[in-house]
Design a protein around this nucleic acid. Sequence first.
DNA 1: GGTGAGAGCTAAATTGATTCAGCACGCCGA
DNA 2: TCGGCGTGCTGAATCAATTTAGCTCTCACC
Lengths: 341, 341
Amino acid sequence: MPKNAERRPTLADVAELSGMSKAAVSMILNDRPGSRLSADAARRVRAAAEELGYRPNPAAQSLRLGRTRTLGFISDQITVTRYASEMIRGLLSAAKEHDHTVLIAETEGDDSMIADAIRAMIDRRVDGIMIGLLGARMIDVPETPHDVPVVIVNGTSTSGHASVLPDERAAGEAMARLLTDAGHRRIGVIGNNPRAVSSPRHSVTIGLRFEGIRAAFDDAGVDPYMVDVPEWNPDIGYENTLRMLDEHPDITAILAGNDGVAFGVYQAMAERGKRVRDDISVASFDDEELASFQRPGLTTARLPYDVMGRASVEMLLGDRPLGAELIPMPVIVRQSIRDIT
Amino acid sequence: MPKNAERRPTLADVAELSGMSKAAVSMILNDRPGSRLSADAARRVRAAAEELGYRPNPAAQSLRLGRTRTLGFISDQITVTRYASEMIRGLLSAAKEHDHTVLIAETEGDDSMIADAIRAMIDRRVDGIMIGLLGARMIDVPETPHDVPVVIVNGTSTSGHASVLPDERAAGEAMARLLTDAGHRRIGVIGNNPRAVSSPRHSVTIGLRFEGIRAAFDDAGVDPYMVDVPEWNPDIGYENTLRMLDEHPDITAILAGNDGVAFGVYQAMAERGKRVRDDISVASFDDEELASFQRPGLTTARLPYDVMGRASVEMLLGDRPLGAELIPMPVIVRQSIRDIT
DNA sequence: GGTGAGAGCTAAATTGATTCAGCACGCCGA
DNA sequence: TCGGCGTGCTGAATCAATTTAGCTCTCACC
């Protein structure tokens, strides 16, 4: 009962056209080792498949084989930041290379929906599940039955699932060293977030970022002006920069918690008539799109979401061991740091 | 041959536990109208299914039914703009409401790969295909065999596929009117893009945006200073604003082609010591994330990507007619326009 | 000439769900 | 008492692939 005018060709059609059995066709098209079919038969079968435009029905294959060549990606938030787009881009391209496709679901920020999403993916018999997090947090992941592997991308789980995280400690060190190497000694830092640092549920990486920063400053014998902040956004950056310019007029550089904070730093300096770079150097973390829009361009350590997405696919598909992987954060050098040595 | 310790329960297991036939179980669980099975049998079957944690195998279902309850989304670019994220968010939530899942693929900006991606989706037997475009262009879509419906989201096709587009003409009119209603008469516009306007391959909407702008200004008897630009980005906005401030020092408002251009307008005004809003009002289009970061907040017409994604799903699933749909662009009022009446 | 091995291929079972055709039973009316 | 009908249910076919077991040749060797 074809619902279409033209029914799609099946294995049986190829078998009939080539004058072989379905078994032979299947073996030839999958070129199964150990099956001894004549070169002539193989040629006829391939020609018939080509002529009909035969493509195997994945539903039938996965019914028979129990594998779907499909991965599931569950995101806690498909947001407006670079996060989801680049992670999806990375994992799509890796999945494509392995001839897999990707199913996507979103929990809309409600962690209790992770269980539902996993369930839906398992129902659909995916071969592996990636859980992507906007902020690198620790989450609870319900037990997944049926031996489906799970990777947390940009986060960790309370039950020790495999994970892919950015190497924030190294990045913190690198950015701080960038400033001290350029000769800066009186440096403002906006700013640590004590609440986040103390709770892995809030972040498993911010603490490391600041650990690296502190280590590099200690190394260089620099004692920065550190301010704690409750959150990272342009308003916080703006207000704290104004205050810092008042309280420490001698600073030559500001290290911002992320690009959003740095945006506020730029705004505050413009308002005070200070020039970024020429008067005060600025550096930051994340490399959001707007970092490249700034004048002068903002030097920042990039969160490598695309590489992380790719790595998670490679873990699920066996190219990398299923473990805890740290991905380096490249330093994107633009024009916001002045060398004053 | 269960590859797992615990095999997943099947319909047959439910049938055995409940003492009914597979046929009966199937009819009851799908509560097929017209099948006359006793209430008692229904209760026993449901109890058994619940006890075993039975979930139907979608591969088996789609093999039998020819439908997969899966939609395909092909994006020309998963970029760093709000575009892909919000479109995906919108279509995921609509798909979820209809109990469908979404497969995603990306062409990495190479239109010739659209054919491959469609092919891959068709191979996977999706029930419908959405093609999402970063810029609202006209593209060639290869013929899709096998009656799979296709919708272009944020674009059109040369062969007249169904499409979902933002209502740019109305938005252009609305933003221009916002300025004239606030009493502005000497207005700079940065800027029309003649190349894009003349070629649907480049854009099918920019022309409409400016048609609306011109219509509203004509209505109000305003003759704006229009500059043509080859592209829309912060640098272009920056340079043209500097020039405009020199050549037309009397202007009270600037309408930017999009938020990226407006970003450059803000930067140029800061450099010239002009205050946005107090000295010169600014308005724009798109509502990228950075529009809300600006000081003062940028008033702009929002590209409703999420609504467009949702609409495309509803078209494919029969909630809306498969045709050419225009989605309104809401005006997001922030603080960048001053009333000078 | 009989036996064994191996090459080349195929029939049929299997996967899990849906659905058509039809069986058995009870009840009613004539 | 028999035919007819409705109710409640089931057997078997079907969807499109993969895989196992085994069949039929041919040829070599003793």
